[in-house]
Simulated scan of single mutants.
Amino acid sequence: MPAKSKAQQKAAGAALSAKRGDTPKSELKGASREMVDSMSEKELEDFAKGSRKGKPEHVD
């Protein structure tokens, strides 16, 4: 399931980076900190992939 907004996509990308060990988990904030614990690496990949073009910044 791809992200519905740019913010979701960015958070998933940050969480994926921490999950893979490229970024320290202590640097994560907000939704990305929750995502890294609650989602698998495959789920994060699916959420973060795709183009941001045409997506809203935030979704209500």
Rank of each mutant, 00 (worst) to 15 (best):
R33C: 01
L16C: 07
E34M: 01
D46I: 07
K42F: 11
S17V: 02
E27W: 13
S38L: 05
L28T: 07
A14V: 00
A31N: 03
G13N: 10
V59E: 15
S32C: 01
D22N: 13
K10E: 14
P2W: 00
T23Q: 10
G13L: 11
G13H: 03
A7D: 12
K55Y: 10
K6V: 15
K19M: 03
S5I: 13
A11M: 04
R33K: 12
A48K: 10
M39L: 14
K10Y: 08
K19P: 01
K19T: 02
A14Q: 11
E45Y: 08
S32T: 02
D37P: 00
K4I: 06
M39G: 03
V36E: 06
S17H: 02
K29G: 00
A3N: 10
S51K: 04
A7Y: 13
K10M: 12
E27V: 07
S17C: 12
D60N: 12
T23C: 00
G54T: 06
G50M: 10
S5M: 12
V36I: 06
M1A: 15
A12M: 05
A31F: 01
E57K: 15
G30K: 07
K53C: 04
K53R: 14
K6P: 06
K55A: 11
S51E: 05
E45N: 11
A11Q: 09
F47L: 15
K53H: 09
A3G: 14
A31Q: 13
F47Y: 14
L28K: 09
E43Y: 07
E27C: 04
V36Y: 01
K19R: 14
G30L: 03
M35H: 00
G54H: 01
E57T: 15
A31W: 11
A18P: 07
P56C: 10
K42W: 07
R20H: 06
G50V: 12
L16E: 08
E34K: 08
A3H: 06
K25D: 05
L16A: 09
S38C: 03
R33G: 02
A12N: 05
K25Q: 14
M35R: 02
P24T: 12
L28Q: 07
L28I: 06
K4E: 14
E45G: 05
T23S: 07
A31C: 00
L44E: 07
M1D: 12
K42I: 08
P24Y: 02
E41F: 12
P24F: 00
D46L: 13
A12E: 05
S26R: 09
V36M: 03
T23F: 05
P2C: 01
L28C: 05
P24N: 11
G13F: 01
Q8L: 10
K49V: 07
A15P: 05
Q8P: 04
D60G: 11
K55E: 09
K4L: 12
V36H: 06
K55I: 02
E27L: 11
A11W: 03
K53M: 09
E27M: 12
